[in-house]
Design a protein around this nucleic acid. Structure first.
Lengths: 286, 286
DNA sequence: CAGATCCATGCTTCCAGGCTATGGATCGGA
DNA sequence: TCCGATCCATAGCCTGGAAGCATGGATCTG
């Protein structure tokens, strides 16, 4: 009768890894502990979910059916939590503003000048969608582009994009660059929005050469400082981070970086709408 | 981070009762225990959900928002469990048939003659919808009418409806009746489908007089045996139950009782479809 | 066939959660 | 205004169960 969401989480992890040991590691749990959690869950359901399959495990048909519902259930749980927190914030007139660092200085100043009671929270780039969609944050400040979705945004700030090089790179001493000069330079690969940040295709219609795949700004700067690739990023990154062994040079002939405030139209509280208006009186863009 | 569904259940109960003591009783829990569960849930959410309001409690705005999501979350949890069990049954070729007693004898015989591996489960009348809708049972045998919903059904059996009287009632000795003879008799009230089972309106266009409201067959028979009202039910009830102090008399001039097999079109496994076909080769009715 | 890999089981420890008793706050009636 | 009734919150004690460690057993690989 009583389903424990921790067990559901455990099962989903096992189903994804198809390996109890790795899943246990991911959950910061011992392997026997995780095995027993799965057994408990099976006990509650009265159904076998996984079977030993030689080395490793395999989901039973029931497990396959359950994992689908389980994922959706966990999302709903997050949503329920977020709904309660959002209602509490809305009632207190508070606004929770997420941001994907760095925030350009001028935007930061404008934010500080509002006298609305607001809270700031750092948001990982890859979680921005679920946080906004689930209503866990009211607004989010981030660099465009954002992916598809029901979100609305207004651009708050534009600034040049810059190239990042290891210190000893042949172009590291330049004061400005054209994108055409970077045709042969390997560039760090990104999981999303490669077209924009890697400028692919280049003006001549060709694709750049890709280096290692990175999942965060920190990783990207590390890879660059090691000399394994160059990167293209916003001027604010150059200002905000001071990575040793990396120098930045403005690129003159590509579109600027754009920083926007983004929100989910269904979850816009009155206070959040007010903040949004005072940050950007201009009309919204989809 | 980790939401415990038991706490969610506890909170929903408190929200419904607006009274910790009563909710605790309903959950078979001590009052302090329940209070602590609510506090724990509030701790997890980081938000107050209830406030003391003089004698009793009141939901905060966050509580109001959460209770809506919470209910939906609990339903999803039930659905997830049901999905796993159904998949396991489907894989084993098993069929779980619910029934709202009584099952007419001939239907019971037909069911016994199938050599499919099937399991029978008694289902409370008021839970038939959620059980079928959630996929916890594959088919359900029950008396019509069923309420609105996506369900499909085939009538398996028809039989006369009968009036139930206390033994000393003036009509208790009759061998048959017309509905018109019951115009002045108080009849037990039902939460749903009153039109059909209480024959309201009567052929003359008027409504019957209503007696106590009952929620189950057992309650109904008890009320009748106490002489507080009469009832109209199916002949199978007269056969299946033998309540002391109640006698049954057929009513000739109203539509018969109909027993049907019902299913949810989205949750019909192959094996269940086979059982359905062999129970009732006739074409389905919406 | 031996070794490696990986899940299952037995045993022990420890903490979370439940209950009883009691305190504290509010409401209603005299 | 005061007293009693009602109801939620807190404190302290105790038990059940969940987690970890060590080890066994099954399967695959070279």
């Amino acid at each position: 009768m009583d389903l424990d969401l921790r067990l559901v989480r455990a099962f989903v992890a096992v189903a994804e890894e198809e390996h109890v040991g790795r899943a246990a590691e991911r959950l910061y749990l011992s392997q026997p502990g995780l095995t027993k959690q799965i057994r408990r869950l099976e006990g509650v359901l009265g159904v076998r979910l996984v079977e030993r399959q030689g080395r490793g495990i395999r989901l039973t048909p029931a497990g396959e059916a359950f994992v689908v519902e389980a994922r959706s259930l966990l999302r709903r749980a997050e949503r329920a939590v977020a709904a309660a927190r959002r209602a509490a914030r809305a009632h207190g007139g508070e606004v929770l503003v997420g941001f994907v660092p760095p925030i350009p200085g001028p935007v930061s100043v404008r934010l500080a000048e509002l006298d609305v009671p607001l809270e700031l929270r750092r948001v990982d780039w890859h979680r921005r969608g679920e946080l906004l969609g689930g209503g866990e944050i009211d607004l989010c400040l981030l660099p465009l582009p954002i992916g598809p979705g029901p979100f609305r945004h207004i651009v708050l700030w534009r600034e040049p994009r810059v190239a990042g090089f290891p210190t000893r790179h042949r172009l590291a001493g330049r004061s400005e660059l054209s994108i055409d000069e970077l045709a042969e330079e390997p560039i760090v690969d990104l999981p999303t929005h490669r077209e924009y940040w890697c400028v692919d295709p280049r003006p001549d219609g060709r694709s750049p050469r890709y280096g290692p795949l990175v999942h965060s700004v920190e990783e990207m700067l590390e890879v660059v400082s090691q000399g394994r690739a160059m990167c293209i990023t916003s001027a604010s990154v150059a200002e905000f981070y001071r990575p040793p062994g990396v120098v930045f040079v403005p690129i003159l002939d590509i579109a600027p970086a754009e920083f926007a405030v983004v929100w989910h139209p269904d979850h816009l509280t009155d206070a959040a709408a007010e903040v949004r208006r005072r940050l950007a009186p201009s009309p919204e863009t989809s």
